[in-house]
Design a protein around this nucleic acid. Structure first.
Lengths: 100, 100
DNA sequence: TTGAAATATGAACAGATATTCATATATTCA
DNA sequence: TGAATATATGAATATCTGTTCATATTTCAA
């Protein structure tokens, strides 16, 4: 079944705006990009981006709420990884545009 | 030349966040979607979305600043259209995700 | 050139949101 | 159990952003 003309109703566009809103923050975007290579613990993400643990934790929650990352607990660490291949694709599609 | 692993630096991710920010507003998204079928005057967009002319005008400026729409003047009307096929693609890619 | 129509712009305001700080919760290990 | 480590959470604050209202600008037509 091919991807015919999509006919999003208004509500769908509101949802879509909410999705893009999540991508529209550099901290969250950097977190997601960091996870391109695979899952990482909260502390490692924070260190890698040189941001506070609390900042990362708050933003990870946003990402998780929007089903863009998923978690795996291992001992007292929690590993976050991209939930979906779509995440990579959306970011790469955006990069295409940024790169002209 | 194929699309090898992209290696965006931090600054590029900031730019990308700014791009997604533009898509992350329902008014702007609805405007862009309205333009899927072709260019439209400011007034017609406003009427079509049942929003104030001023609101539309302000948001069109944001879209234009970010090179997502382009204009064509005809008499005292100004027609706005999508600047780029990327716009459609980015929105459709997002819709894919919203539709699960 | 004057009036009307279309669009743009600026200021003000309200609502949203990201970060920080302090602290709570959860888990492991001794 | 108690200390230490990893993560989460809540409140406070500062900043950003979208809309509205009023008005300016541009263009056409008479």
């Amino acid at each position: 079944m091919e991807n015919k003309e999509m006919i999003p109703d208004i509500e769908m566009l509101f949802e879509l705006a909410d999705l893009f809103k999540v991508f529209g923050d550099s901290t969250r975007l950097r977190i997601m990009y960091t996870l391109f290579d695979g899952e990482m613990s909260v502390g490692d993400i924070a260190e890698s981006l040189n941001l506070e643990q609390s900042t990362i934790s708050h933003q990870l929650r946003v990402l998780r709420t929007n089903k863009l990352v998923k978690i795996r607990r291992d001992g007292r660490q929690i590993y976050y990884g991209l939930d979906d291949d779509h995440v990579k694709k959306i970011i790469e599609m955006g990069l295409d545009h940024v790169l002209e």
